[in-house]
Amino acid sequence: MPFLSKILIFPIKSLDGVEVTQASLLEGGAIAYDREFAIVNEQGKFVNGKRTEKVHALRSSFDLAARTVTLGVHNQSQFQTFHLDRERNALASWLSDYFGYTVTLQQNLYMGFPDDTEASGPTVISSATLETITSWFPGLSLEEIRHRVRANLEIDGVPPFWEDQLFGKLGQYVPFQIGDVAFLGSNPCQRCVVLTRNPWTGKRDSSFQKEFTIKRQQTLPNWAELSHFNHFFRLTVNTKVPPSETGKVLQIGDEIKILQSQAIHSAATDEGNTKLPG
């Protein structure tokens, strides 16, 4: 029986994650605290791994109960702790000094800052998928692959790429359930340069995307809906959470069920929203 084996939350978009044993759903569909904050420049653009590799060298740890973040730089010994609410200006100043230009911290308590605002729920992948991808790249660890992928929900008790059953034809959703929480699977997420980089240094592997794409096409399971794969640099499943699920709780060990084989039609196709959760 498929079950939820890991929950990862990324309180500040593009920075390190926090592993938790349970999490509630926001009205906008996201997991509470996930991408609650985003770093933006003076033009209002996200400062993330897509725009600057310096993001990868930032080390962050969070105390969600205390509402604090501790920041440092990879391979450096000095760290500083900030309260996310009371010391937000000081935190922004520290980040501005690090990046070399002015940044601020924006907050969204409705659904955080997902890349896919149409399918703003948590992203899903199986443990076996991560293990399989690790086998494609000798020298990379499972933990490094997990850090590159940055998925919210990890499923165990299933074969590799089991999650590719959770999306239907373009413009359709596949209903499934994790514990008591209902989800609609939307689309396989289109990846970007972040997946090709070392998650701690930002160094890019120039051959990663080509090798990944070849292997992904070769191992695509029969249950995957091909209409989404105009290319094969896609991984994890984006989801939508109905408003009725607001406040419900996910927890490790929850069973996962696909509710019906017939997908639900959506008002619009998803190709414009197949983006990486950064």
Rank of each mutant, 00 (worst) to 15 (best):
L8I: 13
D16F: 03
R35E: 07
F37I: 03
A38D: 07
I39W: 02
I39V: 14
Q43V: 03
H56P: 02
H56N: 13
S61Q: 12
D63H: 04
A65C: 01
R67G: 05
T70H: 01
N75H: 10
N75L: 13
N75K: 15
Q76L: 12
S77K: 13
S77Y: 08
F79M: 06
Q80A: 10
R86F: 11
E87I: 03
N89E: 10
S93A: 14
L95W: 11
D97K: 15
D97R: 11
T104N: 11
Q106I: 12
Q107H: 14
N108F: 00
F113D: 10
G121L: 11
S127T: 15
T132Q: 15
I133F: 07
W136E: 03
F137Y: 08
L142N: 07
R150K: 13
R150L: 04
N152K: 09
E154Y: 15
E154V: 15
G157T: 08
L166Q: 04
F167H: 13
F167L: 01
F167W: 08
G168K: 11
G171W: 00
G171H: 01
Y173A: 12
F176N: 06
G179V: 00
D180P: 01
A182F: 00
F183M: 10
N187A: 14
C192K: 08
T196V: 06
T196R: 01
N198Q: 02
P199A: 04
T201E: 00
T213N: 11
Q217W: 12
T219N: 07
P221R: 11
F232E: 09
T239N: 06
K240Y: 13
S244F: 06
S244Y: 01
G247C: 11
L250K: 00
G253F: 01
K257R: 15
L259K: 10
L259A: 01
Q260G: 09
Q260M: 00
Q260P: 00
S266P: 09
A268Y: 09
T269E: 14
L276V: 07
